[in-house]
Design a protein around this nucleic acid. Sequence first.
RNA 1: GCUGAAGUGGUGGAAUUGGUAGACACGUUGGACUUAAAAUCCAAUGGCCAUUAUGGCCGUGCGGGUUCAAGUCCCGCCUUCAGUACCA
Length: 940
Amino acid sequence: MKYNFNEIEAKWQKYWAENQTFKAENNSDKPKYYVLDMFPYPSGAGLHVGHPLGYIASDIYARYKRHQGFNVLHPQGYDSFGLPAEQYAIQTGQHPAITTKDNIATYRRQLDQIGFSFDWSREVRTSDPNYYKWTQWIFIQLFNSWYNNDSDKAEDIGELEKLFAIEGNANVNAVCDDDIKLFTAEEWNKLSTEEQQKILLQYRLTYLAETEVNWCPALGTVLANDEIVNGVSERGGHPVVRKKMTQWSMRISAYAERLLQGLEKIDWTDSLKESQRNWIGKSVGASVTFNVNKHIAKIEVFTTRPDTIFGVSFMTLAPEHDLVAQITTPEQQAEVEAYVEATAKRSERDRMADVKTITGVFTGAYAEHPFTKAPIPIWIGDYVLAGYGTGVVMSVPCGDERDYAFAKHFDLPIPNIFEGIDISEKAFSEKEKTIIANSDFLNGLNYKKATKRAIYELEQIGQGQGKTNYRLRDAVFSRQRYWGEPFPVYYVNGLPQMIATEYLPIELPEVEKYLPTETGEPPLGNATKWAWDIETNKVVDNEKINHTTVFPLELNTMPGWAGSSWYFNRYMDANNPDAIASKEALNYWQDVDLYIGGSEHATGHLLYSRFWQKFLFDKGVVPTDEYAKKLINQGMILGTSAFVYREEGTNTYLSLGLIKDKNVQPIHVKVKYVNASDELDIDGLKADEEFGEDYKDVEFILENGVYKVGRDVEKMSKSKYNVVNPDDIVADYGADSLRLYEMFLGPLEQYKPWNTAGISGVHSFLKKLWKLYVDENGLKVSDVTPTKDSLKTLHKTIKKVQDDIENFSFNTSVSTFMIAVNELTQQKCQSKAILEPLLVLISPYAPHIAEELWSLLGHNTSIATANFPEFNENHLVESSKNYPISFNGKMRFTMELPLDMSKDEIEKTVLANEKTQEQLGGRTPKKVIVVPGKIVNIVG
RNA sequence: GCUGAAGUGGUGGAAUUGGUAGACACGUUGGACUUAAAAUCCAAUGGCCAUUAUGGCCGUGCGGGUUCAAGUCCCGCCUUCAGUACCA
């Protein structure tokens, strides 16, 4: 019998699907285990060999946990809202829903043939109305909540209204907009409903606000900070500008501290936690109020160094700051306006790139030092960012490099407030070594004490207090796109109203064009039927809008991260029509035990989803406030691109060895036309149906009779022609080979290049494995008693593989399998007692061949339900061991010694040995070091 | 600049956490089988020197150190990758 992998794999994939082998039940006597993958965006290009890496790892782990007797939840779905389907729609007119459906079908086919143990009965798609109904529902819950700092959780907005009616807002300790006005209960009760709504909007966890956003004209939409890379859009690399727009925002800042604290109790990688910490950017300091122009205005600043308050010699405002216009003196007005205009013209990117140039201008205004009452000149400088803190710095040139540079440049005074420090050359910013001087009541104090004292004194005069500042900004939640979740929102007099949850979902309307409207409204503005009738509670024709019973609906849609921020909860009870998941299901599954996905989501998805989980926890919807106990970032599989070299301005292409000193242009070619020795298949290339024409008249200059291509390791992408399709690998070598090889390539977390040539190693391992059980006459396995050697091989394999899986070192267990099969082949092992458990060990990695051999062994149930073999140490125990004997650390020879020998006996035996005596040459050793089971070292 | 990760043969990578560095695999070379090729099997494969038994020296980015013993620990550098950046 031959190892016919294609037949075997198709057979078992069908078996698993028909028998629902991997369907998880929402209750069980077994302990639960939840293994989650980051669900994919179904792109039109399909999967390449890099995509399944994490899925294979999680699948191995899920299968292993099943063997160990866990009730395993291992679901999969699709993050199916997104830009590419929409852009395809703009180009071709095809509805994104159709594109998405087709792409999902391709993904599913590709995933199925790799043999994953997913429970497909729980599949989710974020673009499915039955799913986004609950995304809309969560949005409404956020709208109906505010953050109470006293209880440190989200609470019902109705409670806040009651409070306002009883005692006004003076005692309310909420996370809210900065510019809240104080009011009494009496004042509140006198307000109209509309006015009250406007105020409540400043408290809600999702709110409508005029915000400065990252506008990408090319994409016609706003982008979140994490969707911008190096000042251009992550997708497409288009320029991004700042623009003010009315947008929905998420008050994630309310959760900044809890998002930070929560990192302590989850087992995620240090680098990922560190990224999130940096992104949240907590800094502790003080807020200080400076009076300006004899109390005409007040400027609030945030500083981490209140201890340096006496070193302030000027203040700097961001050019965009609201106060600039107000405080500028008439003499300075022209200069200031010119400067503000000039900075506004510079793009964010230019400003970032050009850090060295110091620019700024004096406003003519002076602030008053809170203690010395000395006048402090107020400047504007573009090194101060409007978006951080209050957009103002109290400049302490002696203690801050940037302030120092600014002061030097404009010849401003640099008072020294540090004891024994020379600041004539550069600023001194080492907190720990600081002793304050020339600072009145702070003199002689160190950083810690001076900070405390300064804050105390500021509080005494009512001009400041201790403050913690976070870099984390509220997240803009509106996108001017079609292919996203519609908001369950309509507008009455410009004020947003939620649609009652019983009428959800609000489904996407049909539109003729997927572009913004001529008046610049988002694509939903093209819909003819997109208004809300409060009498029938239905979506109706726009024409019927009368602002008494029929109102316009929100035209924006939600961003990509909306649907992915809670999907892990949906899998627990994916088809529930009445809740995101039933209480029973949520309480049973609790949270994700193992989450595997890419690190590129560190400050996007992985932060937003933690935020939503904490919110849902506050509202009692979910039972845990961190949803993933452990997270592993799989590395990326890179492609090995191939290049041909065209001589500039000609139609001749030079082989790699000939390009020296020539002016050549490297051009990507499809990797499938290059063999393992980097030789180009010229005929194949010229016959390529896509690009063959381009190479028809090309002259290839060979070296030694062949054309050698250049190589480079790059990210796999269609445009680099270095994509390797798993379909081809599966057809040529089988899914089990693909799975083993992806694991064998190297550590899971690491970035590593794909090289198809290497797959022959794992493929021949599978053939050897097959031969161990089966020959031309059929099954070789029998009930013979296993030999000691075979038992040893089996048990050391059990131990190693178990350790490997638990440490996620899947690469080394593949080697372990190879060694085991080689040893057993040499031992001519035919014993069922050895070969049966071996199959269970291999089955998480290579499930198809394991199932086939398992059934040949006479089982009529899936190997997936078999128990993981028990490790028995007794089989590893050897009576003796070959000890390396070294002299002064250098290995000289080996000696066979019994393992149960005591240290003293070993020492005696070794010293008595004639080889030892020979080495010693009559000398007496100083010391003999015996490490039982490992080594004997003689010093002397 | 800061933060995090990492530097081991021609290549991907092992090394039980201080105990025989280079497991396993690719590639390469030689051989067997074959008319031939594929497939399969066997052998060699870190470098240098020596030798026809045996051996010796060097070797885990660089320079020091601790130790009987260092890829692993300590100190000082260098390089690469990733994230982040006028964050007050």
